[in-house]
Amino acid sequence: MPAVIDKPSQLFFAIAETLRGAGLGLKVGSHQDFDAVLDRAWVLIAIERDAPGMRSQEGRIAHALTISLQAVAAVGGERSGFEACDLASGLKDLATDNRWGLSAAQCDLPMNLEGLPSTLIRGEQQYAAWTLSFTQTLYLGQPLLDDPTGIPKFARTWEVSNIDDPDQYQALEG
Score class of each variant (00 low, 15 high):
R20Y: 09
M111C: 07
T137H: 10
A62M: 04
L19F: 02
R60S: 07
G25S: 00
V72F: 01
G53I: 09
D108A: 15
S89N: 10
C85P: 01
Q32A: 13
Y127W: 13
D93S: 12
G81N: 06
S68D: 02
A41N: 09
Q32E: 11
P52G: 14
L109I: 04
N112E: 15
N112H: 12
L109W: 05
V37W: 02
E78T: 13
G77V: 02
D50L: 04
G101C: 02
G29H: 00
I67N: 06
D93C: 03
L91W: 07
A46S: 14
A51I: 04
G23T: 02
V37N: 13
G123W: 10
D39R: 00
I47K: 08
S118Q: 05
P110I: 09
A74D: 05
S89C: 04
E124G: 00
Q106N: 09
E17A: 15
G141W: 07
A95C: 11
A74P: 03
G29F: 05
A71E: 04
G141T: 10
A62L: 01
A36K: 13
L69R: 05
M111L: 14
D97W: 05
A51H: 02
D97A: 13
A51F: 05
Y139Q: 06
E48D: 15
L109H: 09
F134C: 09
T66S: 13
W100F: 07
T119L: 14
E78Y: 06
A129Y: 00
M111V: 04
Q57E: 10
L69H: 04
R122V: 14
H31I: 07
R20K: 12
A41M: 02
G76S: 04
P110G: 11
R60L: 06
T18I: 01
R122I: 12
I45M: 07
W42G: 01
F34L: 03
F82A: 10
